[in-house]
Simulated assay, not measured.
Amino acid sequence: MAQNRFHSGSGPSQRQLRVGELIRHTLSDVLLRGDVHDPDLNRYSITVGEVRTSPDLKVATAYVLPLGGKGAEEALAALRRNAGELRHLVAKAMTLKYAPQLRFVLDETFDRMDDTRRLLNEDRVRRDVEHDDEGGDED
Rank of each mutant, 00 (worst) to 15 (best):
G9F: 06
L102E: 13
I46C: 07
E73R: 15
L17Q: 13
L27H: 10
T61F: 08
R112F: 02
D107G: 08
V125T: 11
L86A: 07
A99S: 14
L41Q: 10
T26N: 03
L41C: 06
G11H: 07
D38C: 03
G34L: 11
D56Q: 11
G135A: 11
Q101A: 13
Y63T: 04
L32Y: 14
P39A: 14
D123K: 13
G49E: 08
H25Q: 15
F104N: 10
S28L: 06
H88N: 08
K70E: 14
V48A: 02
E73Y: 14
G69D: 06
D139K: 15
E130N: 14
L17D: 15
L41P: 07
R112D: 07
R126M: 13
R33A: 08
R117G: 03
G69W: 04
V19H: 07
T26W: 03
G68Y: 12
V36Q: 06
A75Q: 06
E138G: 01
P100E: 13
R126W: 04
V64Q: 02
V59R: 07
L41G: 11
A78Q: 05
V90L: 00
L31Q: 03
V36I: 13
L102G: 15
E74D: 10
L79N: 08
H131L: 10
N82K: 04
R112I: 02
V59H: 09
A83F: 01
E50C: 01
A93L: 09
